[in-house]
Computed example of a mutant assay.
Amino acid sequence: MNISKQENTPIYKVVVNHEEQYSIWSTERDNAPGWKDVGKTGSKEECLSYIKQVWTDIRPLSLRKKMQEVNL
């Protein structure tokens, strides 16, 4: 039986938590509590590239909000 490399390549999904922090998870795993899908799936490289594009400020949301309050 000939199995192509693509069939053995794991598929990942991009997830985000309430602090707007991103991660990737195997599509075969359930999300941990507090993490939700953002709708992007693909290879590890594709998912990490997506995160690099959208997660431009890696500070947690609560810290960004606190810093905005201080700067007002």
Rank of each mutant, 00 (worst) to 15 (best):
M1D: 09
M1H: 10
N2W: 05
N2H: 12
I3R: 08
I3G: 09
S4L: 08
S4H: 10
K5T: 12
K5D: 15
Q6D: 15
N8G: 14
T9K: 09
I11R: 13
I11Q: 13
Y12L: 02
V14E: 00
V14K: 07
V14H: 07
V15A: 06
V15G: 00
V15L: 04
N17Q: 05
H18N: 00
H18P: 04
H18S: 01
H18Q: 03
E19M: 12
E20I: 10
E20H: 10
Q21M: 14
Y22R: 05
Y22M: 04
S23W: 03
S23P: 01
I24F: 11
I24P: 00
W25C: 05
W25Y: 08
S26C: 10
S26V: 01
T27R: 12
T27C: 15
E28W: 02
R29Q: 14
R29K: 09
R29F: 15
D30W: 11
N31Q: 00
A32P: 00
A32K: 00
P33Q: 10
P33W: 10
P33E: 10
G34V: 01
G34H: 09
W35I: 02
W35S: 01
K36F: 11
D37N: 13
D37R: 08
D37Q: 05
V38R: 08
V38S: 02
V38Q: 05
G39Y: 05
K40R: 15
T41A: 04
G42R: 05
G42F: 11
S43K: 00
K44H: 06
K44C: 09
E45N: 03
E46P: 08
E46M: 09
C47Y: 06
C47G: 02
C47T: 05
C47A: 11
Y50D: 00
I51G: 03
I51P: 01
Q53A: 14
Q53S: 14
Q53D: 12
V54Q: 02
W55D: 06
T56A: 13
T56L: 15
I58T: 10
I58F: 06
I58D: 05
R59T: 07
R59E: 11
R59Y: 02
P60A: 09
P60D: 03
R64V: 12
K65W: 01
K65C: 07
K66A: 15
K66G: 11
M67E: 15
M67G: 05
E69T: 07
E69W: 09
E69Q: 14
V70Q: 12
V70A: 14
N71D: 12
N71P: 03
L72N: 15
